[in-house]
Design a protein around this nucleic acid. Structure first.
Lengths: 202, 202
DNA sequence: TGACATTAGGACCGATCGGTCCTAATGTGT
DNA sequence: ACACATTAGGACCGATCGGTCCTAATGTCA
């Protein structure tokens, strides 16, 4: 059944985001998802690698639904949406008690150099994420100064968020992330036209 | 002898920065450093964990000597020094072919949640790094606007650099890091007083 | 040359890893 | 009741992991 696969995927996603991919054994996944044994697992997945790929896909889907969706909300001012998105990331990290961070960042650091398949998939995740922000910036273009490099800025935003997630995780201190989020919003605000800024203040 | 230990530490540092800590086996280190066998290694180190701690210490020392030293150069304008430091990080990553990234960021992502001892040590590394930047910003205070939160800004800088290092590693594209470095400098420049900016342009 | 600490060498251990093989239970449609 | 695919269960495999034990070399000072 498909529910069994989903169960395994959920359990694996949790374990991998908490312990990393290599540190999560197939037996951990079996225990967590209530399977009976090795071959029960290998009935649903051809290998641990395949499991990892699917977990990554699933994580991105969820992130797209629950996170990136904020960036696409049609009724809200684009820059306001970006702020909401950042706030949502901060809130999520606070909920996790600063553990686990971005599921992509951790995987990226662990596997980028060691496993080409994962590297490419994670690169794609970052690219799609950047594209979402870029199109938001494009939408906000009337409010922004003329020479904004939206591609570069979108990558900057993601890099800062990923770095901040990592740092708050290492320090186990959400205020680190909160402070960086404030500065990040200020940096984005730096690209807002003077007249638009006055309109927003009004 | 001390040279033997240093040899092992160097070999281990290279392997760990390329493969991660868990993925680097004691036998890898033995092979790379030309030891004869297990007990030869365990003659110099009590455990793999102890090796990891000493490698981290050594990496930070080197980073402090070769990297952070730039932040302390007495004859150069403080903000100029910060730019040089950022450029040096970018150049180092380009030299590595975008592989490996920051030795701390990778370790942080791998071990922050899994190993409390490493987590604390890496947190200390980030703290010392941030302190260096903070005291540079303090030195640059005359040129900066009044309400700069130098602690928060220094953490912002490090987070952005770490995130950018990770991203350029995943994409295997140095231009990602270069672009973010440009924006990061612009953000720092945002805190420069209007009159100081005019003086700098002259 | 002899005594003794340091360094080197290699066999070996228990645990765990990802993965396979074969069989038993449980549907499900006829 | 039948056949047949799906799902479940568990023993087992070779490889690798971190780490130990015991024994040779190799200094190094008297």
């Amino acid at each position: 059944m498909n529910t069994r696969r989903a169960q395994i995927l959920d359990a694996a996603a949790m374990l991998i985001s908490r312990q990393g991919f290599s540190a999560t054994s197939v037996e951990d996944v079996i225990r967590e998802s209530g399977l009976s044994g090795k071959s029960h697992f290998y009935h649903y997945f051809r290998s641990k690698e395949e499991l990892g790929y699917e977990v990554l896909d699933r994580q991105f889907e969820r992130f797209a639904e629950r996170g990136l969706a904020i960036l696409r909300e049609p009724m809200i001012d684009p820059l306001e949406r970006l702020h909401l998105f950042i706030d949502a990331l901060v809130a999520a990290q606070a909920e996790r008690g600063c553990q686990g961070g971005s599921p992509f960042g951790s995987l990226a650091a662990e596997l980028a150099d060691a496993h080409e398949g994962f590297r490419q998939r994670i690169a794609l995740v970052f690219e799609r994420w950047a594209n979402q922000i870029q199109s938001l910036l494009w939408e906000a273009r009337p409010y922004l100064v003329e020479d904004v490099d939206s591609g570069r800025l979108s990558r900057f935003i993601i890099a800062t968020l990923e770095g901040a997630l990592l740092m708050s995780r290492v320090k186990r201190d959400i205020s680190v992330l909160e402070g960086i989020a404030i500065d990040l919003k200020r940096f984005v605000g730096m690209h807002v036209r003077e007249q638009a800024r006055q309109a927003q203040a009004a």
